[in-house]
Design a protein around this nucleic acid. Sequence first.
DNA 1: CGACAATTCAAACGACCGTTTGAAACAATC
DNA 2: GATTGTTTCAAACGGTCGTTTGAATTGTCG
Lengths: 222, 222
Amino acid sequence: MAEDARGRLIDAAGRAFAERGFEGASVRDICSDAGVNVAAINYHFGDKQSLYVACLEQAQCSESQQTLRAADPSLPPEARLHGFIRGMLAAQGDPDRPRWHNALMLREMAHPTSAAAEVLKRYIRPLAETLREILEQLSPGVSGMPHDGWPVGFSVVSQVLFYAVHRPVARLLMGEAEHDALDVDFLADHITRFSLAALGRGPNIVGPSAAPSAGIRKTVSR
Amino acid sequence: MAEDARGRLIDAAGRAFAERGFEGASVRDICSDAGVNVAAINYHFGDKQSLYVACLEQAQCSESQQTLRAADPSLPPEARLHGFIRGMLAAQGDPDRPRWHNALMLREMAHPTSAAAEVLKRYIRPLAETLREILEQLSPGVSGMPHDGWPVGFSVVSQVLFYAVHRPVARLLMGEAEHDALDVDFLADHITRFSLAALGRGPNIVGPSAAPSAGIRKTVSR
DNA sequence: CGACAATTCAAACGACCGTTTGAAACAATC
DNA sequence: GATTGTTTCAAACGGTCGTTTGAATTGTCG
């Protein structure tokens, strides 16, 4: 029963921190949610801050299969990009992975605490390097563009991050029903095609074919 | 001296709310910052929550000239898009407009409170409609795409929002010096060209010419 | 069973929270 | 100068915060 209380605390705290922020989540609510005494935080972690760090560490450990697949340099770059994008999108709604993992990381990145540097080094930086490698493979010379090509990479990931950070806005703008009809596959296809077209590596977005290009579908999806 | 205390309170509170969030900002800190007594919040606004709403209303009132310019349907759509993007970017660093205005809105949109619906209706919705109109003018038929073309609009604005929401990450990834070298004009040009290329209305990003197309520059910039 | 460590518990700690009070200070009008 | 309404102030309110305490409980092993 020892590790159990610790684990339940991290899970309850992670959900609370992700939803209401560090200041907004009270230790009493967290402990009540986890079904443990308030003193358990002090016993297992020391204090609230250390519990928060433990949540971040837990959130860092899980990584999507799809994102890993994208790292395989033997695949065609279009498929790698699609896998990368789909992987990031899927991580948001992965039922095997607690929802709060992504939300907590996003909070930490938007309003960094002292723990942000570690998260960036271990979690964000590898993702960024993978994407840069894919983009360079896709369009040689992109790394040599102004500001080392970072803005191109940002233009790609920003489209993915939008649906994680600004989901409430998108929901209200589109209408709930229409928004809930968006699924991971559709968004991954859209963002991939938008980005490929911008890089001159695919047909533009408003073409006659609304279906994703066959080359992408056959190598990555399902 | 009456309206002065009220105004100083809104300014101090806006900065505090934007930086540390509603829960993280204490009324004592805010009042100390504004140079007023703690009871002033109750006297001028009623309570902390109403002060927060007052800050949001203040933040809504200011709008960038550039964004307005983009609403002019007589301009060529490429120039309107560039104006729209540059306007949103410029609002982030506008010295005439307190920095907290944008930050507070972004917080409200990422983690909506009960006041979010009003903000969306009065501030976000008009922006979204303007963009949709520009995109439809740019690429007729985009509104008829799946999900009413919303994903296309999201792909454009997300690139702008990235630099507002994830600035700390971008800073750490690129390195401080390189990041601070990014200016509004460069980013506006980059995002516009990326989006136009995706829509098939311009050369792709990694072309021989790193300079923005003349048609955009001459109508909008400076 | 008895000894010992690991874990949980109810209760309380001081500090800070948002809010309120009633009097003092100020401004404007007669 | 007296009157009236507006604004500021120091002080305190009850409540919740994160944290601590020391005893009670549980689990482990000789």
